[in-house]
Nucleic acid binder design. Sequence first.
DNA 1: TGACTTCGTGTGAAAATTACACATTACTTC
DNA 2: GAAGTAATGTGTAATTTTCACACGAAGTCA
Lengths: 229, 229
Amino acid sequence: MKHTYEYPRAALTVDCVVFGFDDGALQVLLIRRGIAPFKDHWALPGGFVRVEETLDDAARRELEEETGLKDLFLEQLYTFGTVNRDPRERVVSVAYYALTKPADHTTAASTDAAEARWFPVSDIPPLAFDHAEIFASALSRLRGKLTYQPVGFELLPPKFTLTQLQRLYESVLGTEIDKRNFRKKVLSYDLLIPLKEQHREGPHRPAQLFRFDPVKYERLKKKGFLFEI
Amino acid sequence: MKHTYEYPRAALTVDCVVFGFDDGALQVLLIRRGIAPFKDHWALPGGFVRVEETLDDAARRELEEETGLKDLFLEQLYTFGTVNRDPRERVVSVAYYALTKPADHTTAASTDAAEARWFPVSDIPPLAFDHAEIFASALSRLRGKLTYQPVGFELLPPKFTLTQLQRLYESVLGTEIDKRNFRKKVLSYDLLIPLKEQHREGPHRPAQLFRFDPVKYERLKKKGFLFEI
DNA sequence: TGACTTCGTGTGAAAATTACACATTACTTC
DNA sequence: GAAGTAATGTGTAATTTTCACACGAAGTCA
């Protein structure tokens, strides 16, 4: 079935920058394109927005179709609309970024994508279209966000140690943080709940496990919050 | 001439939230719609994106066509894409916000818009489509931005007094600020250049006029800046 | 039981933020 | 031209926040 309009229309897509945290380093999920253009190149997961779904829905749907991931933290980033970003025709892309917990890193490639793989953000292959620009923009946004909103937990498993949280901040922000000052600061927000359990691993003192309080977290996210590290 | 596609496509528009500062209060520029739907309702200036122009270009073009404003500070805000935001058909709108200096407030309504008018943000009429939501989002972004980036100058004339700048901050942020602390802080960024001139008005001591240093300003905007008040 | 490794904690110095009051300058009016 | 009026312009002390920094505790392994 054909669809006809008075004026030419741009195609509308969504693209997702999915971040994960593993091996003590920030990772991003890329797919190898199975179809032209840029066949066999690495690219951000994404695809065309259907006319009866919202942008957020499209992002979640494409993400699940191409990578198997669902129910993750997802936020709109920016809309990329230069004229020649796609060689085929005019395509405007609404970019999203997403944060996943390590448990979700089971990525079954499917449908459009020939393959899905995690890459450390410090070592990304050349990307299709203007995806390198989108990725850079997402990384910069994540860095900014981390310094004033408590989104770091979205990248950690439900139970985590303060050291894991600190490593996350250090590796995303690219700085070293003093352990005592970090703990003082984080705990002062009264957002972390110490568990009865401990994390024991290796020949040394076990670490206290924490989870974060989802109620206080939501409250913080809504009002002006403040989670400066 | 008709244009035909395999799948149905959303129409793509831009909408602009234009802020001005006048009468000691933050103002927003609205147009009265000359055509259906929402004929005679107030709305944000905006219109359809042409297939051969970027999103930014479309925003600037529509702004000039509908309000006569050009060369203003303009930044993409967010893309609104719920399914039924336009009663005619699926329309996705990329929202922008803009800041104007008072000198530019000469608004000649034209083309699509029957009338253009400034409204204090505290007293906005009902808006067409989901424009109230877009406006709220823009205002919230402006507030956020003002507290950590030196964009306030974009809303003031080229020469201004520190009191004017303070009033701007107070009225946008909705807080009272201590005069001495404000001046100390603002001047410490070394961004303001005192002029030889003074601003004299009324039966009292005249005020020192300042302009801001565009070079330092650009430098601040690019790197992590920091303009906390 | 001693070596090793990571966890967990407190204090003092420096810097930033906040609170706060009065003399100065020009215009107006008497 | 003297007195009144109104907004400008300036400094300091108290408080809070940030930053720098070192060592005992708890567990494993040999």
